[in-house]
Design a protein around this nucleic acid. Structure first.
Lengths: 83, 83
DNA sequence: TAGATAAATACGCCTTAGCGTATAATCCAC
DNA sequence: GTGGATTATACGCTAAGGCGTATTTATCTA
């Protein structure tokens, strides 16, 4: 359930998954966050330049949070696919 | 040990704490990440516009990782100070 | 397979991150 | 308190984010 994310792409994928789990589309999230649908799309696709404020807004809208911790030796399956 | 972080400021504080725990200064992290000391300073101070790529680079340099999960009802103490 | 819903792109605009380079402001130990 | 180390700011520059508005390109479903 908890998802280890180490790259923008992994973060985007995790967000997309959670968004769908919530039954929302990108426009819905955009409304909740005052961000454009296009921006949500960019974040989910793993744009490196996504701004931290933007990301935090999206997480809040999806009722998600980050935990920051020392890297673990996680099995590949626990981490987002590299592809 | 694990730190719940929900805002750029909390993320910056957590990074600063971990950096010090590693016995590094901002310049050291800058060297490891090809970022400027000034950039590390900005991230640690919670700049909203910090880019995701930048953040991930710093986390990697400090051997940290994110976990993304549903928000918990954590006691205030488990979460970074609001300020 | 048509129609509708959702996601990805486009264009021009304004703002700002991060860069190099430097310097000012703090912190700390001696 | 002073000198060295660390961190915060400054300035001009280039590149890119996110905005509004719209359209194209999937995706899904009846």
């Amino acid at each position: 359930m908890d998802q280890i994310v180490r790259t923008p792409k992994q973060i985007g994928d995790a967000i997309r998954r959670q968004r769908r789990k919530h039954g929302l589309n990108q426009t819905n999230v955009g409304d909740r966050t005052k961000l454009r649908q296009a921006t949500i799309s960019a974040v989910e696709s793993g744009a490196l330049g996504t701004q931290l404020g933007t990301l935090c807004d999206i997480l809040a809208a999806l009722d998600l949070e980050f935990v920051i911790r020392p890297r673990t030796k996680a099995k590949p399956a626990e981490i987002e696919d590299i592809f």
